[in-house]
Design a protein around this nucleic acid. Structure first.
Lengths: 183, 183
DNA sequence: TGACATAAGTTCACTTTATCAACCCACTAA
DNA sequence: TTAGTGGGTTGATAAAGTGAACTTATGTCA
């Protein structure tokens, strides 16, 4: 499907995948550790890890020979998923807290415990449903999952009561050739 | 499972759910619009919407009587998911861009096109795999999905080469009773 | 008056995935 | 040589997803 969210979900959205990535971030690296911690069936863990390795999110590295043993580690793409896990965790803490309070907290390198916030790197302001407008990008196309963008982003609007999109298309700055890649 | 990420994934992580939420954010609201845009089978869309309504993420509101017709809209919890969708989208744009470039771009209310960044609200610094350490919270427990936290967070460390966790437990500020709920 | 259209689903047969439990293989240590 | 460990396979069973057709209630055109 022609949509960045769908692409991301295709790689990261399978049942156990976010939890596998969380465990790898937390320092687990061996097959048996992951299987035991998650309680996932071993053949499914095999498939998930294969998929993650194929997607370039996880690296499978032999940490000893005779017998060969493998460690699983996050690649740069994998480490880049971690902030997305933070925002998911923050949402879970806020709207679906397990009984007894949040099981884990985050501490930033500035020394403070915090709840992550998604921001605009230009002005530092919060990026949320009220302050952000999506607009068609260079790869916009028609078809499943993008018809939405084709229709409301085309500017017609259709008169639906809350169309946060149509009237903003004209505001898009030029030079849409590439997104900032940050970092 | 006793983990905020698992809770969030339980609500948001089912196959089509992020795309449904994206479409609702973009202004679609009717059953047939969603079904047509996504190409999802209709009975599955029914189940997903029921699940989202039960979880308090989506609201089902009759927008006309005779015949009764329903509109689906994001609740506050649903609007709160949107920043997580932004970070997923940013990841997808960076690491799994569909051919032709990103299909959608984001414009902040400050007027700039941007790539969302997850930050610490105290210092404004970026929150990523290098700058953030998770520590055990008040609801920390043992069992599947939290054994990880029980072991490395206990401070033993076990000598694994990259344990970003153990040495930081002592740094956690007091008063862990509740996470900042922001906004 | 009848024929057709629309929105919002249901039902059903079929296919694909996930899960659990058990097994396998190479090697090591005692 | 016997048992243990790490990293998987294999195969039966259970759960989910898919596509197409059907339903219900109503409005609209001719």
């Amino acid at each position: 499907m022609h949509c960045s969210i769908a692409q991301a979900v295709g790689v990261l959205g399978e049942p156990w995948t976010p939890l596998i990535l969380r465990d790898l971030f937390l320092g687990l690296s061996r097959f048996d550790e992951l299987a035991e911690d998650l309680g996932i069936s071993r053949n499914l863990l095999t498939r998930r890890l294969e998929h993650l390795v194929a997607a370039g999110v996880v690296e499978r590295r032999p940490y000893q020979e005779r017998p060969v043993r493998y460690a699983y580690e996050l690649t740069q793409a994998g480490r880049d998923v971690v902030p997305a896990l933070f925002t998911l965790m923050a949402w879970g803490d806020r709207w679906a807290t397990p009984p007894g309070g949040p099981p884990a907290l985050l501490v930033h390198s500035c020394g403070e415990r915090f709840t992550p916030v998604v921001t605009c790197p230009h002005c530092g302001g919060e990026a949320n449903a009220d302050t952000v407008t999506p607009v068609a990008g260079p790869g916009a196309a028609q078809g499943p999952g993008t018809m939405v963008l084709a229709a409301p982003l085309a500017g017609a609007g259709g008169g639906r009561e809350s169309d946060p999109v149509g009237h903003l298309v004209a505001r898009v700055p030029d030079g849409l050739g590439q997104v900032d890649q940050g970092q």
